[in-house]
């Protein structure tokens, strides 16, 4: 039986959002050649859109910290914990404050990925690690 994994990307920056979804798709395409994996990637610019799709068995979320309109990843993490507790979340942000990783961790985030030239590589590594752990 093939493994099914649903990945969501929430970032209000459409450029990064597109890029991240594309890169993750490429990574999973390659990964699924060696591992039986059925995957779906959904990308959202607004938290509300993510909330509407949380019930559909989302396994991994890449979550930007600042989401515009004073919404932060912490607000989203609270909502996610209400709707889907079985989800691995990585916070992806430009924010340099090291404390942020601990704050978000206490709200259910399992990784903290700073936005730099290695972000997408690290995001893929996080996804691979999560898939390995889950299956």
């Amino acid at each position: 039986m093939s493994k099914r994994i649903n990945i969501s990307v929430l970032d209000d920056n459409p450029f990064f959002n597109n890029l991240a979804s594309f890169r993750i798709n490429n990574f999973l395409e390659e990964y699924s050649q060696n591992n039986t994996l059925d995957y779906r990637i959904m990308s959202f610019l607004h938290p509300e859109d993510l909330y509407q799709n949380l019930g559909s068995g989302t396994n991994i979320i890449l979550l930007d910290y600042y989401l515009g309109d004073s919404t932060t990843a912490i607000d989203v993490l609270k909502k996610i914990s209400e709707k889907n507790k079985d989800c691995s979340i990585a916070i992806v942000t430009q924010k340099d404050d090291p404390k942020l990783s601990f704050i978000t961790r206490s709200y259910g985030a399992s990784a903290f990925i700073p936005k730099d030239d290695k972000t997408l590589e690290r995001a893929c590594y996080f996804i691979e690690k999560t898939i390995t752990k889950r299956f």
Binding site: S101, F102, A111, F112, P114, E121, R122, Y125
Partner: peptide, 25 residues
Amino acid sequence: NNIPIIVISAAVENNDVSNYMSAGV
């Protein structure tokens, strides 16, 4: 809790560095 931390380690693989970063160093 805000004291800057620099990790000095011989473990230099990419995932090691990712772990340090996740720890907030």
